[in-house]
Computed example of a mutant assay.
Amino acid sequence: MSKMIFVNLPVSDLARSTAFYQAIGAENNPQFSDDTASCMVFSESIYVMLLTHDKYRQFTSKTIADAKATSEVIICLSSDSREAVDNMVAKAQGAGGAADPGPKQDHGFMYGRSFEDPDGHHWEVMWMDVAAATAAPSA
């Protein structure tokens, strides 16, 4: 079995966050969702668990970071093309997120942009031409 990743994010408004992640292409898995959590599926191996603050506190005694004021993590998703990168960032902005909180990256063989969800969680979206990347001379 291949490894899977479950990213757990505390959210202040579960319905708003669920709608946001659906708008950028994730599907809700109702089997693992209720009034305290939404399981958002990006692929067979990538899941985002949106958790109310009360639910999130069941897993840690640490203070929940305010992702709009501090950086706790930058999560990166791969994309199939430059256009798909731009499309996801546009969808994020249209759904209430912020586009490009980090610098755009264009290295020819690799292209990336970023967005923040409504709670301020920082996501990057990257495309890479693997063949060109492996042929590029190292610095």
Rank of each mutant, 00 (worst) to 15 (best):
L77F: 15
V130G: 00
W123M: 04
Q93M: 06
A98D: 11
Q105Y: 07
I75L: 14
D117C: 04
C76D: 03
D100P: 01
W127C: 07
P103H: 10
M126K: 01
G102E: 13
M126Y: 10
G94H: 04
A131D: 15
A84P: 01
D119F: 05
L77C: 08
K91G: 04
F109K: 06
D106R: 04
M88W: 00
A99D: 10
V125L: 06
C76Q: 12
V125R: 04
E83P: 00
D129S: 10
C76V: 12
S114C: 03
I75T: 15
D129V: 05
D117A: 07
W123S: 07
M110K: 03
D117N: 07
A90K: 14
S114A: 07
R82V: 15
I75K: 09
A90D: 14
S79G: 09
G97E: 10
S114V: 01
D129H: 09
H107Y: 15
R113Q: 12
Q105V: 14
P103Q: 14
G120F: 04
Q105G: 06
M128D: 10
E83A: 15
Y111R: 02
W123D: 06
F109L: 05
S81T: 11
R113M: 08
A92V: 07
D119R: 08
A132H: 07
K91Y: 02
G102C: 09
I75Q: 10
D80A: 15
H121Y: 11
V89H: 07
G97T: 08
W127M: 06
D80T: 15
M128N: 07
A90N: 13
G94L: 01
D129G: 10
K104C: 05
M126D: 06
W127E: 09
E124G: 08
D106F: 01
M88K: 13
S114H: 01
G96E: 10
Q93G: 08
A84M: 02
A95K: 10
Q93K: 15
D117P: 03
D129C: 07
A92H: 09
A84V: 02
M126H: 05
S78K: 10
